[in-house]
Simulated assay, not measured.
Amino acid sequence: MAELLRVDKLVAGYGDAKVLALVEFSLEEGRSLALLGRNGAGKTTLLNSIVGVTTRHSGTIHFASRDISRLPAENRAALGIGWVPQERNIFRSLTVEENLTAIARRGPWDTARVYGMFPRLKERSRNLGNQLSGGEQQMLAVGRALMLNPKILLLDEPLEGLAPIIVDELLAALRNIVTGEGMSAIIVEQKARKVLPLTDEVIVLERGGIIYRDTSIALLASPETLEKHLSV
């Protein structure tokens, strides 16, 4: 498989503050990565750096064989980087359907496919964003990212604060997207045992650097390593 994303010796943060220290990894097309670590380890900063909303001090980011290190965030999205931030960032004053179509790009993912994956959204297609529950807003955020028809999907703690039944629904959808559809993805999540079965590879960050990398299966099979790095 061809390489889709490569991060080389990345040092990045916010303003003068450096959060990431010489981070290096790559991801092939069709592969998925769990990005784990304790609070403050730099997980969100790494996603934000790929998206293009941090300060890059040194190092490079290549996506689809192109150096995107200096590209503005909107140009990176146009190249095929779909992002679901912690804040979800849906348009609260627009309906569900308007949220989905406002930034849609041509491709296999359309409103019918998103509604098929998230029937709750179809039922609430005329509801405003601010009329949805937290779980429905998260589904909408994922659906909106899919409507960009991205080459890679970046999800920042998609299960945070959700009721167990919604967590199960969202995990089923993500499993379909990642394993069924073969979409490349990087998933940041505190619930390691929930996300590892969905992904091919795993990276653990600590203090802005990578301290562990292996297959997701290998980490799941090693409770001692999980406890050591994540205290789970």
Rank of each mutant, 00 (worst) to 15 (best):
G42H: 02
A102G: 07
T95S: 15
L219N: 10
L5P: 00
T45Q: 10
L162R: 13
E74M: 05
L5N: 02
S49D: 07
A141T: 07
A73P: 01
P164L: 05
R120Y: 02
W109G: 13
S184M: 12
N176M: 15
D110K: 15
V84Y: 09
I68V: 15
L71C: 00
I217Q: 15
G134M: 13
T179D: 08
G37S: 03
G180H: 08
G42T: 01
I166N: 11
A12P: 07
S125D: 10
L35H: 08
G182K: 09
L219Q: 06
A102Y: 08
D168W: 05
T54Y: 12
N48Y: 14
T54E: 10
A145D: 00
E24Q: 13
I152Y: 02
E97S: 09
N127A: 15
N89W: 13
E181G: 09
L4H: 07
Q86K: 08
I61S: 04
P108Q: 14
V51N: 04
E181P: 08
V96S: 10
A192R: 13
R126F: 09
E181K: 13
L162Q: 05
T225F: 11
Y14F: 06
V7A: 00
F118W: 02
E189Q: 04
G143E: 09
Q138R: 11
L100C: 02
R6C: 07
Q138Y: 12
D168P: 05
E29C: 00
A21D: 15
L226S: 04
S69A: 02
L71G: 00
D8I: 12
T55C: 00
L132Q: 07
G134D: 05
V114M: 04
I81M: 05
I187T: 01
N176S: 13
I187L: 15
A163E: 00
Y14T: 02
L132D: 06
L10D: 00
L100G: 01
L100S: 09
K194V: 01
L121A: 03
K18T: 14
S231K: 15
L219Y: 06
L71M: 12
M117P: 03
L159W: 06
L155N: 03
E87A: 09
L170D: 06
L47S: 03
A172H: 11
I166W: 07
M117T: 11
L5C: 00
A145K: 11
K228C: 10
K191Y: 10
F91T: 08
L198C: 09
G208V: 07
D168E: 14
L146P: 03
G82A: 04
S222Q: 10
Y115K: 03
I103D: 11
A102I: 15
I177K: 08
R144N: 05
I177L: 08
E87N: 09
N99P: 03
I166Q: 07
M139E: 13
R92Y: 15
D168F: 09
S133W: 06
S216D: 06
A112K: 15
E169M: 11
V53Q: 04
R126S: 12
R76G: 05
T179S: 14
